[in-house]
Design a protein around this nucleic acid. Structure first.
Lengths: 160, 160
DNA sequence: ATAATTCCTCAAGTATAGTTGAGGTCAAGG
DNA sequence: CCTTGACCTCAACTATACTTGAGGAATTAT
């Protein structure tokens, strides 16, 4: 017979894996990175709070949006350690998250619109390109180049 | 005195690096992955077409949008090999790209809106969560879990 | 002509995000 | 009790996207 989650409100790592869809190894990895902080039972096995389902759900969604583990850990530091987060806790963290989100979407959308006037027209002209210098400060956060599409304007006619 | 790009219309790897903002090593890496196919001069050094500036610019933008090198290579296969792409060539490729883009933006936006009704309210309720089962087929393309936020509904009151 | 650059290849290293396997312990069911 | 399945640690391996360095050849500047 299936185990049914022994005794109290605490979850084993297997329970949590089943509930979040994550692998057991991924959850251990996330613990290592500080995303969850399970307690241990007498035998040394991890015991998670039910609130950790929510915590990991947040991790999953945030990853979908392209946030790194480190960035997500940064966000989750705003949640309390030993107890389940309150509504106010989640509201606080979600505000921050939402603003990062909006920035990301805005940047994607802006890039798309500029692409429409460059690649979209079929020429991808760099001489008069709108994407030219589209790489502002925010763009340089990633692993990208020093200047996005920053082709210096000594191009010949054949380039445009 | 600076080199000024010798003779013909061909660029050295250094020229291309300067023009795209990429490092020389990155360009060699991209060649290895099939994103550019430079010719070689008598001495065995790479010589790039001016059109390769555009090619690599495309790579840069596509990466900004979160496409992998392999996916970008797939797109670039639609461009001609030895000659500079025509307007029609870029139009064809840009249509494909634009549709991928729109899907990505739509997915981001949808997820954000759902977050608003879950995390946004401060409770991140999973019992009645809109994000619950938000992980449709499209969501499972990434390195993610089997079911996004798929917390099965045998939760207690303390969970909501 | 010679020195300074730039370029070449190839192997190894870095960071992120995990997975896999060895060797061993813990817990639940019969 | 004792077997089976879940769990433990730790090291090593995978993939992506590059960078760094060694050892050497080609180009360019003076």
């Amino acid at each position: 017979m299936k185990k049914l989650m022994k005794g109290g409100d605490l979850l084993t790592i297997g329970d949590l894996a089943e509930r979040t869809g994550l692998s057991v190894s991924a959850i251990r990895f996330y613990e290592d990175r500080g995303l969850v902080r399970p307690s241990r039972n007498a035998g040394g096995q991890r015991r998670f709070l039910r609130a950790d389902i929510r915590r990991l759900s947040f991790v999953l969604v945030a990853q979908e949006f392209g946030f790194s583990i480190a960035e997500i850990a940064e966000q989750l530091k705003r949640l309390p350690e030993g107890r389940a987060p309150t509504k106010a806790d989640w509201t606080r963290i979600s505000r921050e998250f939402r603003s990062h989100l909006d920035q990301r979407i805005a940047r994607m959308t802006a890039l798309r619109d500029k692409l429409d006037s460059c690649i979209g027209c079929g020429c991808l002209s760099l001489k008069s390109c709108q994407l030219y210098n589209a790489g502002d400060a925010a763009a340089n956060k990633g692993r990208g180049p020093r200047y996005l599409l920053g082709d210096r304007p000594d191009l010949k006619a054949s380039d445009t």
